[in-house]
Amino acid sequence: MNRNETDKKHKARSKLIAKLIPYLRKNGLQSVRMDEIARVMEVSRATLYKYFSTKEEIIGFIIEGFIGYINELTLQPLDSEQSFSSRFQLIFEQTVSLNEYFTEIFLKELETSYPEWHDKLDEAMKQRERLILAFYEEGVHKGIFNNVNGKLLIKQDEILRGMFNVKYLMTNQLTVEQVLHDYYQLKKIQLFKPDKLSAVDDAGMMPRIEHLTQKITKHLF
């Protein structure tokens, strides 16, 4: 298979997986069968097997995709105040997406049924945390960030998972967009020194928050 054919196959597989992930997020991994996967992907079993021969291959493709997404953090140089802003926004966007997709049921079943893939994802997440902590430390060193405890900032992000809940949102009369917008502002103010806030391009972040809002709301209802 040449490079062009490989790229086409990868894109086709990615489109199929995009249809499946919300279903797995709600229903878990263990009970779903290949015929159900084909139904969710809206393809025949024959077409499904053309792209994925086993359920384990599907899970592997999903986890490798997320690991690639996580590793995007290493692609951005830190050579200006604006670059610190850009990486902060990427970290925020990643944090929201990862908390939204990796539900407790998904992670627990991944560990039970596919321990090798769970370990690979776990190592990628640990490496991500190390990169974020180093990023915070560099920002403090360069006088861009407040001298805050990076580990506490990362731990704080766990509250997002509980907020993406219909009951929580309705009880507190909140929308997903409000939660994301207010949490983004909170993280920004916690991290950046007051005289460095102007380096953060909120206008560029708002469309990304709107996109996240649409994805999360679609999965909730």
Rank of each mutant, 00 (worst) to 15 (best):
K8D: 13
H10W: 06
S14V: 05
A18G: 09
K19C: 03
I21Y: 01
P22V: 06
L24P: 07
L29G: 08
S31V: 04
V32N: 09
E36N: 14
I37H: 12
E42A: 13
E42C: 07
V43Q: 00
S44V: 02
A46P: 03
L48Q: 06
Y51A: 01
T54N: 03
F61I: 08
I62Q: 07
E64W: 04
I67H: 03
N71W: 00
N71R: 07
T74N: 14
L75D: 09
Q76H: 00
D79Q: 12
S85H: 07
F88D: 15
F102Q: 03
T103M: 08
F106S: 14
F106W: 08
F106V: 15
T112D: 15
E116G: 09
D119A: 15
K120V: 06
K126L: 10
A134F: 01
A134K: 09
F135W: 13
K142I: 04
G143E: 03
F145Q: 07
N146E: 05
N147V: 03
V148G: 07
V148P: 02
K151S: 14
L153V: 03
K155S: 14
L160F: 04
R161N: 04
G162L: 04
K167P: 01
Y184A: 05
K187F: 02
L191I: 14
F192V: 00
G204A: 02
R208N: 12
E210M: 14
E210N: 15
I216G: 04
L220S: 08
